[in-house]
Nucleic acid binder design. Structure first.
Lengths: 154, 154
DNA sequence: TTTGAAATTACAACTGT
DNA sequence: ACAGTTGTAATTTCAAA
């Protein structure tokens, strides 16, 4: 993971459809070398997958809400229950007031209510607190050019 | 936007590297027709871009926190100030207690503190409240196969 | 890094509904 | 007209030298 790998990642985040020739040109590598680097980044799991980023409003995700979930018991093993609700896009265990933080997208507020009802039905959930997004400024990925984890060399 | 388009979107979300031939095979279309459909989905903006999904821990994003931002004034035009902080991955105006909700990734807790300091420095910000994620169950995209926005037939 | 064969994409002209 | 099919040229991928 040197600066060339990071440049490749930044390029692929922006546009994963470009050819290895174009990719190599911008980072100063031959097409073959660029190809091999990217292959290794995929293999090692640094690149998890290449995916089409779909406009949420076009597929029934116009409403965005974050939901804090209170619980009566340890929710550390309840990932599947939340994953079973397709409108729940993220689920995190959090430190603080509630036990879980969810990101939810629905086409309408009615559907949001329905999702909250389904969340309530999960065993151990004692309460929810939804925060609706009125406007999204931006949603982006972390840039690889940002500061390193300052990993100590072994 | 019919069921074939949605199937194409679902496929491309999973793996955007597959050929139009393979794509067409799974949705029951010739490679040319699949290509044309995808081209239109791109052109119309339903597919925003195709991107490499990078493991955040590999590029200095091991820590995840959500930050509620209180403000003394209307923050509706301050998108650029938050976008200028690369560790801020999402920024939403929210209905509720605070004015803004941010998603932040940093390599360490020290760096998180530094980001909070930079957020504080933004004009109008009167307070922050960070919620740290201890464990992420999952982070995924909205599936196109989910319920429609129930568009009224004209 | 370069090379070259195999595969894929992009773009025709054509066909049927 | 419109969306899909087939065929073809130009690129691109990818393994081997």
């Amino acid at each position: 993971m040197d600066h060339i790998d990071r440049a490749l990642l930044a390029q692929l985040q922006e546009d994963a459809t470009q050819s290895y020739a174009a990719l190599g040109r911008t980072v100063g590598l031959s097409p073959g070398a660029a190809h091999e680097r990217v292959r290794k980044l995929r293999e090692s799991g640094v690149i998890r997958r290449t995916t089409a980023e779909v406009d949420p409003t076009a597929i029934g995700g116009a409403f965005l809400a974050y939901v804090m979930v209170d619980s009566t018991s340890w929710m550390g093993d309840s990932a599947n229950a939340f994953a079973a609700i397709p409108e729940v896009l993220e689920a995190h265990i959090i430190a603080g007031a509630a036990s879980l933080l969810l990101k939810v997208r629905t086409p309408t507020t009615e559907q949001l209510q329905d999702v909250l009802r389904r969340i309530y039905a999960i065993d151990g959930v004692s309460g929810t607190q939804a925060t609706v997004s009125l406007e999204t400024f931006f949603e982006r990925q972390l840039s690889p050019t940002t500061a390193e984890p300052t990993a100590g060399r072994p």
